[in-house]
Nucleic acid binder design. Sequence first.
DNA 1: CTCAAATCTTGAGTTACTGAAGCAGTCGGT
DNA 2: ACCGACTGCTTCAGTAACTCAAGATTTGAG
Lengths: 147, 147
Amino acid sequence: MGSTTTTTVPTNAELMEALAAVGGAYFQDFAAAAARHGLSSSQAKALGAVQEPVPMRALAGRLGCDASNVTGIVDRLEALGLARREASAGDRRVKIVVISEQGREILARIRGEMGRTHQAFESLSGEQRAALHSICLHVLPVLSGRQ
Amino acid sequence: MGSTTTTTVPTNAELMEALAAVGGAYFQDFAAAAARHGLSSSQAKALGAVQEPVPMRALAGRLGCDASNVTGIVDRLEALGLARREASAGDRRVKIVVISEQGREILARIRGEMGRTHQAFESLSGEQRAALHSICLHVLPVLSGRQ
DNA sequence: CTCAAATCTTGAGTTACTGAAGCAGTCGGT
DNA sequence: ACCGACTGCTTCAGTAACTCAAGATTTGAG
């Protein structure tokens, strides 16, 4: 592919269809890798969202679900020793979720064992990988509403 | 960004991190749009997977979950009039899930109302949209194991 | 025909998720 | 200092999602 290729620009519907398929397949790979370590996809997703310490409420925002739901998820992560709750210095209402060393390790292992996804990455050219990365970073603030 | 940019090729870990963030945000947009039409994300995902008629067992494969789980999901889609079960001609064990006109309509509406995702698409240049589409199509067979 | 295998469903049990209380802590105004 | 409104977390129903084990029906091969 040269630089001035006359590629057909896809419609939104085509992009949506393709993205839905890729998103679904990616999610399956993720859930399967998490399951191999005894984690549900929600638990693994939460683990990925607390690589930096995050208050419960903010975690609910990141996961796009109700705060009361996060209570249970963090309960289970805590029971597994993958994260813990710490009191906030400034506000005694707030509990901050902190990932443990073991949690960080399992997260890395899960991501490392997403075989299909890694195969997919490796099937891309350097140019494609760079393009994908740049598109992701460009799109992220728009997609998450923090423009 | 010119055409022969010396972009740094990202590592797998960087790609994984970026993809996880984008995937999560996309999923939230999807779930929110589905919820506006009274559907859970699982139901909407199933609806997208039966745009062509699919046997129950195969649907379980597409959704990456147990067959017994699909029974309940299709029950609810059927109760809502969005899909129906039909007998297979050749094998009387098999039940084929067929989307209804109303189901097709709601699916289109959900995809059309994923505002953040559409904004994200529109924030991309024509070149970037084409690149994203081609990467998705290229990656899909690898990612879903049907290489 | 007989038996193994495949398809779907049912039942039990856990987790995910929501909405409505509830409790404790914070903050602004008086 | 006090009061009331608000915020952050948890608890409690209640539903849906999900898994595993077991059952009913049908198929197909020996």
